[in-house]
Amino acid sequence: MRKFASLIIVVLLSGLLLMTFLSLSTADYDLSEHYINHGAEETKALNLVTAILFDYRAFDTLGEATVVFAVASTIAFLVPKRTASMISARFSIIMQQTTSLLIPFLFMIGAYIIAYGHISPGGGFAGGVILAVITILITVTFGIRYSDRQVRPEIKSFMESFGAMGFVLLGFIGIVLGGNFLANANSTLDLGVKGELISSGIIPHINLMTGLKVAAGLSIMFNSLIKEE
């Protein structure tokens, strides 16, 4: 009975959704036209998605970073404090050696993607996830005790708070320069030359802060979730 009722609800909703999709109209996308035609000129960031995320709609991104922060701090208190052993799969020496070999390269890719977020595909979120993969790999291959010894949880939560605060404080630069909060392209900052590494004002710095935050946040989440009582 329950299944039948659910089925009816689901079919009705999906049908409504499909009908809506098929009768969707288009509008003048002036906003995206503006971003495409003038975005790179205004913000000096070649990656338009980054330009939107970290300049035009940077306030959204601040909220996004806040979500990661909130989840990481929640999971940190929800899971058991006692560090018990995780379900241990003993890996062979091949696995362990390969992991240690991979780590520097992973670090480089992560750092590259964060640093070049405004001129090539990537950015703080993507790069941060790759950095978090490093600690996740260490945890999986060498166990949680080793991982927590190598990168202590306190350091991770410090990094996370630091990244989040850094984002907000970078936003205040706009106010200090006499503009509004998170002002970048419209402030008196020197944006540099389009396409160079040091350009587009505070965008690379916000990228860096977000990267730090996401990397720390995700590794806190993973290490907390994998602990067993």
């Binding site: 906003l31 995206s32 971003y35 330009a51 709609r57």
Partner: peptide
């Protein structure tokens, strides 16, 4: 359109 891409990331 870059806007939905930025939104979907969020």
């Amino acid at each position: 359109d870059p806007i939905p891409q930025a939104l979907s990331l969020t």
